[in-house]
Simulated scan of single mutants.
Amino acid sequence: MDLTINSQQRCFEGTQGFYSHDSAICGGAMNFAVYQPPQAKDGAKVPMVTFLSGLTCTEENFTAKAGAQRVAAELGLMLLMPDTSPRGCGYPGEDDDYDLGSGAGFYLDATQAPWSARYRMYSYITRELPALIAEHFPVDAGRQGIFGHSMGGHGALTIHLKNPGVYRSVSAFAPVCAPSQCPWGRKAFTAYLGEDETLWEDYDSCALIRRQPSDAKIFIDQGAEDPFLSEQLKPDLLVAACEDAGQHFEFRMQPDYDHSYYFIQTFVEDHLRHHAKTLT
């Protein structure tokens, strides 16, 4: 698979790069960022952690704002930051709202027209993009983890729970914990998956945990002053699902923190060290 290098910069003795390629699964150009730690010099294979961003974000948000590269360099972790949706499909309503369409792929494979032709982020994240990374970067595909923020936290949790043997470690910042029961999720699931709510369970962390908990420890940080906490994120439902199913988890409510990247900056080191315990 061909890869276009858009830019590469030296960063903590490693390399931060931005790339693009033509995606067969998403039917067009897709962008992503990769941080290669110094341990990957001369082709030495290193573990990789994928970060999934939230609504309205691109591959640039976490890469530029989280301050993760310093810790990733110390721990020898490659970081992969994909975009959050296909772009420029021309579908009606694609760019009308921040919570549907562009920047709002919800890390699922849409089944409803017109979205089903290109909004296939689940297959892109779990199949096509890892294969591309393995072809062009020195990654140890047997040592992968996944984490994310908000909509991306939802994506990280569901992708881990559906693929626990591939994504061996998992964490999230302020995830959308029960998308079937919040306005963001219900709007997206109705558009992308249709009216049958039983089909939504395949992309709902609470339902997936109750169906089949994983052997991993789910690590979550949530800001107590997050404006989306009660209406959209609903972490109490995830905690209840974990307790009911016997899922190993650690949930930290962080006083005074909100939903921003300042929150992520503060705790990203804890998350990377959480992943490194399993992957390195």
Rank of each mutant, 00 (worst) to 15 (best):
F267Q: 06
D221F: 14
H275W: 02
F12N: 07
A64N: 14
Q181G: 01
F32P: 03
S23K: 04
S230M: 12
L79P: 01
P37L: 09
Y35V: 11
L199Q: 13
L132C: 03
A33E: 05
A117D: 14
V49H: 04
G153Q: 03
D99K: 07
H160K: 01
A40F: 03
D95E: 15
C11R: 01
E201P: 01
F251V: 06
H154N: 15
A216I: 06
N61A: 13
E135H: 12
Y124V: 02
T63H: 06
S171Q: 03
A191Y: 08
A33L: 08
F18N: 11
E74R: 11
F18K: 08
H271K: 11
A64P: 00
H259G: 13
S230L: 11
L193Q: 08
N6W: 00
F32T: 07
T280M: 09
S150Q: 09
C11M: 03
F219C: 02
I5W: 10
Q112S: 12
R273L: 14
G105T: 08
G67C: 06
F32Y: 14
M30E: 09
Y122D: 10
L3N: 10
A172N: 02
F106Q: 11
Q232F: 12
L132N: 01
D270H: 09
G194D: 06
D2Y: 10
A131Q: 15
A156Q: 08
K41E: 00
D244T: 13
D96Y: 05
S7V: 04
I5T: 14
I220T: 03
S102L: 07
D83N: 13
P183Y: 04
A156R: 04
A64R: 15
Q39C: 05
S169L: 03
P82R: 05
R10F: 00
F32E: 02
N6L: 15
V239C: 10
E128Y: 10
I146N: 01
C206T: 15
T15H: 00
K217W: 02
Y262N: 08
F147V: 12
M253D: 11
Y19M: 10
E201M: 15
A245S: 14
R210H: 04
F137E: 04
F32C: 11
D97I: 01
F32M: 05
A68N: 00
D96W: 06
R118L: 04
T84E: 04
D204E: 13
L52S: 02
R168W: 04
A172T: 05
